[in-house]
């Protein structure tokens, strides 16, 4: 048992002071309840927030893919107005089909972003598990070096 943990726990080794221990348990659970949960019950680990931000920016960029028609006046005397109206209708037609394409592209982008986020999450979880394994291996090595056999099943008070 680490010295840092023992030094934080106040109790009389001869006779457990239940009230004192319960107060400390309450305090410990109360402190920890507000801590952000790095590993949720499903074992999910959040990917790097900067990575997620970049994905969200990519997703949001779809909204800017298609804007309305942007025409500069033809500047031709007499028939210039008629020319501009014809060009406007032509541009609107192009924008209509481009918008349909953009919507389809947007759906694809959103699915792709979701899939990539899931991959990033999985990768983060693997990294967390690797760290956990390394920690457990270190503990096991320390126990074996001290001559203690590791427990094969969850230990229980009898």
């Amino acid at each position: 048992m680490g010295d840092d943990i023992v030094s934080r726990i106040e109790y009389d080794p001869a006779a457990p002071d239940v009230e004192s221990i319960m107060r400390q348990v309450r305090a410990h659970l109360g402190e920890s309840a507000g801590r952000p949960q790095r590993v949720a019950r499903t074992g999910q680990v959040e990917p790097d927030p900067r990575f997620v931000d970049r994905l969200r920016e990519a997703e949001a960029s779809v909204a800017a893919m298609v804007t309305g028609p942007q025409l500069t006046p033809a500047g031709v005397p007499v028939i210039g107005g008629l020319l501009d109206r014809v060009r406007l209708e032509f541009h609107r037609l192009v924008v209509y089909y481009l918008s349909r394409f953009a919507q389809a592209q947007g759906r694809f982008n959103r699915e792709t972003v979701t899939a990539v986020e899931a991959l990033a999450t999985a990768e983060a979880r693997v990294a967390a598990l690797e760290a956990q394994v390394a920690s457990l291996e270190a503990r096991l090595a320390a126990l074996e070096a001290a001559g203690e056999a590791p427990a094969a099943a969850p230990t229980r008070r009898g």
């Binding site: 023992v6 109790y11 457990p16 319960m22 400390q24 410990h28 659970l29």
Partner: peptide
């Protein structure tokens, strides 16, 4: 830390 406390209850 919690286990150390709980083991005494």
């Amino acid at each position: 830390e919690l286990s150390e406390m709980l083991s005494r209850l």
